[in-house]
């Protein structure tokens, strides 16, 4: 199943469940001295994307790229400094209090760590039931039935409601987290690294479960992961983030077949692969150094300090996110207008 590619056009079609425009999340750090300016972390710095209903948008990037903060901001769990978030066409960025609570039944989140995401003092049944109680969904009896149904849906037995989280394995705990996210029948589920804390053999169980549920209920996923293999398998569209910005955004086939941004290319070539073709790719790029810190980022292209193709212009002038071809967006001066990336051009 492939979803329609997210469109970058100014007037997005109405079938977008989630639209994010110019999202910024900035944090201030404690000042170093009494008169020094407080350093600002530009965790998310002007991110825009659309997610089509029933599709999966992947957010990938290294630590510090702002992918998780973006997801938390969309969930209104991180403070939004600037920008618009539209869910079902309704602006949720400025909502607070009851109005925000009412929107919460339409969006839910699955966390990375199946250990810290479940309250150790509550029984599994109470955890899955909590969203229904908190958001007043259904009456008392229908909630009991719904919880039992949710347990079955995620591959647990309803009798296991009585158990505490520590009595489950990691994979089962993640199923409880999925059941909780599913409880209020949301439209959007943010999956924040949902399998990276799990053992390899368990990952497949959860990924299959997520895809089955998506098909069954027409869910839309915002899927955050650093594992490109998982992203390629799960996502219809992929946005690559670097230091708080989207540097490339395309549907899955064009992004993995024809990566345009040097950073995307470097990221793909860094993945250790069992595939000899991938391993010997001629255009394989090795990055030097670690990703720079998102505190007070320098002017120009944020990737310039690690980019093997960087020129004078890259360090001075910040590139815009341009659309090339069919909805393939890229933020790089050196990609030509007909879509020739610098690593191809130099060959």
């Amino acid at each position: 199943m492939t979803g329609p590619a997210a469109s970058a056009a100014a007037n997005p079609p109405p079938d977008n469940l989630l639209e994010v425009r110019g999202l910024k999340v900035h944090f201030s750090l404690p000042r170093k001295g009494p008169f020094a300016p407080a350093p600002k972390v530009h965790a998310v710095d002007g991110v825009s994307f659309d997610t089509a209903r029933g599709a999966t948008l992947g957010l990938v990037g290294e630590s510090g790229s702002g992918k998780t903060t973006t997801a938390l901001a969309v969930m209104r769990l991180a403070p939004v400094t600037e920008g618009n978030i539209l869910l079902n066409g309704q602006e949720i960025g400025p909502l607070s209090g009851e109005a925000l609570r009412r929107q919460r039944r339409h969006m839910q989140i699955i966390f990375q760590d199946p250990y810290s995401s479940l309250n150790p003092r509550l029984r599994a049944g109470e955890i899955v039931r909590a969203p229904l109680d908190q958001l007043d969904v259904g009456d008392r009896e229908s909630r009991d039935d719904r919880v039992a149904e949710l347990f079955r849906l995620v591959g647990l037995r309803p009798e296991q409601q009585a158990l505490f989280p520590h009595q489950f394995s990691g994979g089962q705990r993640q199923r409880i987290g999925v059941a909780r996210a599913l409880a209020t029948q949301p439209d959007l589920i943010v999956c924040d690294e949902p399998v990276s804390a799990l053992d390899v053999a368990i990952q497949a169980q959860i990924l299959n479960l997520l895809r089955r549920l998506q098909e069954e209920f027409g869910l839309t996923y915002l899927f955050i992961s650093h594992d490109l293999g998982v992203v390629q398998y799960m996502c219809d569209d992929v946005a690559v983030m670097y230091l708080g910005q989207v540097v490339e955004h395309a549907d899955r086939v064009s992004l993995f077949r024809e990566p345009l941004h040097p950073y995307t290319n470097a990221l793909l070539s860094a993945v250790p692969s069992a595939d000899p073709v991938l391993r010997d790719r001629a255009s394989r790029i090795r990055l030097v150094g670690d990703p720079p810190s998102p505190i007070d980022p320098p002017p120009g292209c944020r990737f310039a300090s690690r980019c093997p193709f960087a020129e004078e212009r890259c360090r001075a002038e910040e590139p815009a996110l341009r659309t090339i071809g069919e909805g393939h967006r890229v933020r790089c001066h050196l990609v030509s207008d007909d879509g020739v990336p610098p690593h191809r051009a130099s060959n």
């Binding site: 769990l77 919460r104 039944r105 989140i109 810290s116 995401s117 969203p131 909780r180 209020t184």
Partner: peptide, 13 residues
């Protein structure tokens, strides 16, 4: 800062 507290906020607690 633990995720189960974030989860509570996400379910509108």
């Amino acid at each position: 800062e633990l995720d189960f507290v974030k989860a509570e906020r996400a379910i509108g607690a």
